[in-house]
Write a protein that binds this DNA or RNA. Structure first.
Length: 881
RNA sequence: GGAGGCAUAGCUCAGCUGGUUAGAGCGCAUGCUUCACACGCAUGAGGUCACAGGUUCGAGUCCUGUUGUCUCCACCA
């Protein structure tokens, strides 16, 4: 039954239809089923404001490939999707829209109305990224899609906050925190990016109060001097020994401040004398604590000088800097200005300079939590793939700092703490209180801040499965199996999930963390909006198909390493899809009406069939092993090679003689093996290229509803035909060698020639006669039992198992042939020499494994035979010349 | 300052626990309207596996150092 199929595979005609078929079939959905083992992945939730980018494509491809593999292996595979509320990003987006469209700020609307707007926005656009993920072929259980601010997640967050609070692991404290005056919120340490920027070192004279002299301090931020409450020198610094304990006069402010001695001051840096601004520098703050220095905050939340800044009140920090420098100069206090490059913290969202500011914030005490997280990874309960990222993780955990979790935003989980206006007590509870739990006053007010977005994402693996309620899903699917993400958020997210999982569920949330690298542009730069070098995955899907994009993501790449994105590789993978399509088209064209997908009887199999089945068998074993070890790139390369090289370039060609012959029985055998191997290989490829494989599989004779739930192939002992495999390879060697000679001599394929074969394995070449005729342009094939007597006009080819003679008449250039054979002989001799050296090495023979030694011996023998044969040929040629 | 990655063909990269004469894609060259496919077929050119030592019977693979390059963490007033 011939089928009409387009010559070129058109993914656009296929993908949406297949995806719907899967969804309607319910194949993505997983329910608790005690008869099966679960395999669970939770998806790193993309930002609700997000647009699909290559990072998502990478993430989703790896996860989907694993999930599909496990599903086919018979696991109850669950991939939980979801979206993150992304505090700052979303709030900024909605505020921006409000400003542009209505000229309003969030303060104009007020908290409640503003939040309504954000929810509106979420309902309107929140699904966009989900729809985009579907285009990637993601087989997530969409019925279980979650949002980090939905009811269940909110409940989990509340439970975690209160329970940590009750354990004393959450506290409110004054600290120098990273403040973004542009986003008007605190940032955690991880949200600050340090950038090298050119700057200056201003040397400023601070006169001693008793008029006996002066000290010179050096600073990179002169504007902070308004908040100076001391000057620090090193206790061992002879230069300043006498002034410790004295007072200096702070210029411009005209205030007396003390000189203190502390190890923090480095004698070698600058003048060895440091001004102390405890409210605006973390180190100064620490020194201040040790020496009881006053803390005076002089910048407000917007980065402007506040009322304590005297005449500079209201100036922006950078304007204030200019003014202060000018005033210092005018007052004769400025000694000099040096150029000085330094690292400036910038906001990871808006990239404006971060201002260290003293502020009351909420913190999680990490030390006690980190201990368990360290132990768990050390004990191997959680493994990183590749392993080296364990170091990253440990490095961070061992130097853990308390986590600043409050954010001065409106969009997010509001901190569940109420302050009593009467007694000042803080009430923190699972239910919203109406009165102060201490004094009973009803004058209580809720903390306006919200929690860091990562606070809720840290709970993702268990909150999505029903925690804190005791749910069956949680029992069954949790702990999850593999977490797939980029190395850039190991500390942000992975570490905190491990901490939270261990603390709240007493279990590590996953046993494996599969880390991938970043997708860069073709020059190795990060893809970013500002550079405009991003490549839209959806555009690639439109152009080359989803399968091609997915293949691009997993080929030529190993875990944890960055990859450059080359459109050319999408093209190559599109070509591969097309190759598979056409091979399948060929198979289908030759299918008979009653064709079934089952192997023919063993005694009907011919050498080519056994060869391909045996190769397939090996492929199955290797690919399965590679996938179990998360070596997706290696696995897919093997499948690619098998399909293109083994199946298309060789096996299909080897079957053609039978398919076009009149022998119905042999034809039937060939077609059945063709279908069987294709079916098996489609299964292996399905996790990587789900659409085209499903589309083809559906058109082949098959049992079962869909490839997505078909059984993963298994190694079959009875299909391992080692002998036939090598026999076939002998013939293939001959074919390749003949082609090469003919090409070298510019013989057109249309010109057939007789072929004489001298071999110790005549039966193999007798069996291969048809292949030699068809693929090596042979006319008649004659088996010889001795060297032909007349070598006139004969091309003479030596392979490992045969000597081949082709009468080419005048086309033979004897001199050229002589040169060629001489060259081959030389290289063979050289090779043999190496082998013999090795074999005569006493130590090699005694210490190397026997199998290795034997293999080398065999190799040497083969090479000797080859050399003998080549020498014969050479002699014969010489006679002719 | 601390930690880590990378360095293999013109380009982009594979190469798992050390063991064939080191591979792929793209690019390049030559030939081919061969009855699935020119998004194709065949053949070929192209590599001192950064450098220097070491371990080993044996090193692209393991160890040490050097150079170049990238990243992460900490942070210098």
């Amino acid at each position: 039954m011939a089928r009409e199929l387009p010559k070129v595979y058109e993914p656009q005609q296929v993908e949406a239809r297949i995806y719907n078929m899967w969804q309607e079939g319910g194949y993505f959905h997983a329910e608790k089923d005690e008869s099966k083992k679960p395999f669970t992945i939770v998806m790193p939730p993309p930002n609700v404001t997000g647009q699909l980018h290559m990072g998502h494509a990478m993430d989703a491809t790896l996860q989907d490939t694993l999930i599909r593999f496990k599903r086919m292996q018979g696991y109850n595979a669950l991939w939980v999707p979801g979206v993150d509320h992304a505090g700052i990003a979303t709030q900024i987006k909605v505020e921006e829209e409000l400003r542009v469209k209505e000229g309003l700020s969030r303060y104009d609307l007020g908290r409640e109305k503003f939040l309504e707007r954000v929810w509106d926005w979420k309902h309107k656009y929140g699904n966009r990224i989900v729809e985009q993920q579907k285009k990637l072929g993601a087989s997530c259980d969409w019925d279980r899609a979650r949002f980090t601010m939905d009811e269940g997640c909110s409940k989990a967050v509340r439970e975690v906050f209160v329970s940590l609070y009750e354990k004393g692991l959450i506290y409110k404290g004054s600290r120098i925190i990273n403040w973004c005056p542009n986003c008007v919120t605190a940032l955690s340490d991880a949200e600050v990016e340090y950038v090298d920027k050119p700057g200056h070192l201003w040397h400023i004279r601070y006169p001693l109060a008793d008029g006996t002299g002066e000290v010179v301090v050096a600073t990179t931020r002169p504007e902070t001097m308004l908040g100076d409450t001391g000057v620090c020198v090193n206790p061992n610094d002879e230069r300043y020994k006498d002034i410790v304990g004295k007072k200096v006069i702070l210029p411009l402010v005209n205030k007396e401040i003390p000189v203190v001695a502390d190890d923090y001051a480095e004698m070698e840096f600058g003048t060895g004398c440091v001004k102390m601004t405890p409210a605006h520098d973390p180190n100064d703050f620490e020194v201040g604590l040790r020496h009881n220095l006053e803390v005076i905050r002089v910048l407000d939340d917007n980065g402007k000088v506040n009322e304590l800044g005297g005449k500079y009140f209201g100036l922006d920090r950078y304007d204030a800097r200019k003014q202060i420098v000018k005033d210092l100069e005018d007052g004769g206090y400025l000694v000099k200005i040096e150029d000085h490059a330094h690292n400036v913290g910038t906001c990871y969202r808006c990239h404006k300079d971060v201002e260290p500011i003293i502020s009351a914030q909420w913190f999680v005490k990490m030390q006690p939590l980190a201990e368990e997280a360290i132990r768990s990874v050390n004990d191997g309960e959680t493994k990183f793939v590749p392993e080296r990222f364990t170091k990253n993780y440990m490095n961070w955990m061992n130097n853990i700092r308390d986590w600043c979790i409050s954010r001065q935003l409106w969009w997010g989980h509001q901190i569940p703490v109420w302050y009593c206006e009467d007694c000042g007590h803080m009430t923190c509870s699972r239910e919203d209180p109406t009165v102060c739990e201490k004094c009973g006053s009803s004058h209580i007010e809720r903390d306006p801040d919200v929690l860091d977005t990562w606070f809720s994402s840290a709970l993702w693996p268990f909150e999505t499965l029903g925690w804190p309620d005791k749910s069956e899903d949680l029992d069954y699917f949790y702990p999850t199996d593999v977490l797939v993400t980029g190395y850039d958020i190991i500390t942000f997210w992975v570490s905190r999930m491990i901490v939270s999982g261990l603390e709240h569920t007493k279990k590590a949330p996953f046993h494996t963390v599969l880390i991938h690298g970043l997708v860069r542009d073709n020059q190795g730069r990060k893809m970013s909006k500002s550079l405009g070098n991003g490549i839209d995955p959806l555009e690639m899907i439109d152009k080359y198909g989803c399968d091609a994009l997915r293949m691009n993501m997993v080929t030529g790449n190993s875990p944890g390493n960055d990859m450059r994105f080359y459109v050319e590789r999408c093209e190559a993978m599109r070509n591969f899809a097309n190759k598979l399509w056409n091979a399948s088209r060929y198979v289908m064209m030759n299918l008979t009406e009653d064709a079934k997908n089952e192997l023919p009887a063993m005694d009907k199999l011919e050498i080519a069939d056994k060869w391909v089945l045996s190769k397939l068998n090996t492929l199955i074993a290797e690919v399965t092993e590679n996938l179990e070890k998360y070596e997706l790139g290696v696995a897919v390369q093997k499948i690619y090679d098998f399909i293109w090289d083994t199946y298309c370039d060789w096996y299909i060609e080897l079957t053609k003689a039978r398919l076009y012959s009149e022998d119905a029985d042999r034809k039937q055998t060939a077609i059945q093996v063709l279908v069987y191997v294709l079916d098996q290989v489609l299964r292996l490829l399905h996790p990587f290229m789900p659409f085209i494989t499903e589309e083809i599989w559906q058109s082949l004779p098959h049992e079962g509803e869909a490839l997505i739930v078909a059984k993963w192939p298994e190694f079959r002992e009875k299909l391992a035909f080692k002998a036939e495999e090598s026999h076939m390879e002998s013939v293939m060697d001959a074919i390749r060698a003949i082609r090469a000679r003919r090409t070298e001599m510019n013989v057109p394929p249309s010109k057939k020639a007789a072929l004489y074969v001298l071999t110790a394995k005549p039966q193999i070449f007798a069996e291969g006669e048809g292949f030699l005729q068809r693929l090596a342009y042979a006319d008649a094939v004659t088996l010889l039992d001795k060297e032909p007597e007349n070598l006139d006009g004969m091309v003479n080819i030596t392979t490992a198992d045969a000597k081949l003679y082709i009468p080419m008449g005048q086309l033979v250039d004897v001199a050229k042939e002589l040169a060629r054979i001489t060259k081959e002989l030389e290289s063979a001799k050289k090779f043999l020499e190496g082998l013999e050296n090795k074999l005569s090495n006493e130590k090699f023979v005694s210490r190397a494994p026997e199998a290795v030694v034997n293999a080398e011996r065999e190799k040497a023998q083969k090479t000797r035979d080859l050399i003998a044969s080549l020498e014969q040929s050479l002699e014969a040629m010489k006679k002719m010349a």
